[in-house]
Amino acid sequence: MKVTIEENEETGKFTIKVKTEDGEEKTIEIPKENLEEILAKLPPNVEII
């Protein structure tokens, strides 16, 4: 699983794009305050880009 994290400076939010092993892609946008909480919940086999 690969996770790409991009900061949107205009909105102050982060866009998180997840690509699973089977090629499925999902995108979510979260507030900056929630980034550490989300990262802590990721499984250890995740590659963060």
Rank of each mutant, 00 (worst) to 15 (best):
P31C: 06
E6F: 15
I28Y: 15
K32L: 07
N34I: 14
K2L: 11
K13D: 10
E24T: 07
E29V: 15
F14H: 03
T15P: 02
E25K: 03
E7K: 13
I28S: 04
I49Y: 05
E7G: 07
K2H: 10
V46H: 04
I5E: 03
I28A: 12
V46E: 02
E6N: 06
F14L: 15
D22T: 11
K26R: 12
P31S: 15
K32Q: 07
L42D: 00
E7Q: 08
E7M: 14
T20K: 05
E9H: 14
T27V: 13
F14K: 01
K32W: 10
K41M: 13
K13N: 13
E37Y: 08
E47N: 07
E25V: 13
V18P: 00
E25R: 03
L39Y: 02
T15K: 05
E24Y: 13
E24C: 12
V3A: 01
L39S: 00
L35P: 00
N45S: 07
P44Q: 12
T27G: 03
E24D: 10
N8E: 03
E37W: 10
E36Y: 13
T11V: 04
E29K: 04
A40P: 02
T20C: 14
G12A: 03
E9K: 15
L35M: 07
L42R: 01
I28K: 02
P31Q: 12
A40F: 04
T20W: 15
T11F: 05
K13F: 12
P44I: 10
T27R: 06
A40Y: 04
T11W: 04
E24H: 10
E29G: 03
E21A: 11
E6I: 15
T11N: 11
E37I: 09
E9C: 13
E37T: 10
E29L: 10
P44E: 10
K2F: 13
E29R: 04
N45E: 08
I16N: 00
L42Y: 09
L35Q: 01
E6H: 11
V18A: 03
L42M: 07
K32Y: 11
G23M: 02
K19Q: 15
L42N: 01
N45Q: 05
E7L: 15
E10M: 11
E10L: 13
I16W: 00
V3H: 01
E37H: 10
E29I: 14
I16F: 08
K19S: 10
I49C: 08
K41V: 09
E36N: 09
I28T: 06
N8A: 04
K32M: 09
G12T: 04
I5D: 00
P44K: 06
L42P: 04
G23N: 04
P44F: 10
M1A: 08
K17C: 07
L42C: 07
E29D: 05
K2I: 14
E33I: 05
T4K: 01
I16A: 01
I30M: 02
P31N: 14
A40Q: 10
E9Q: 11
L35D: 00
E24S: 12
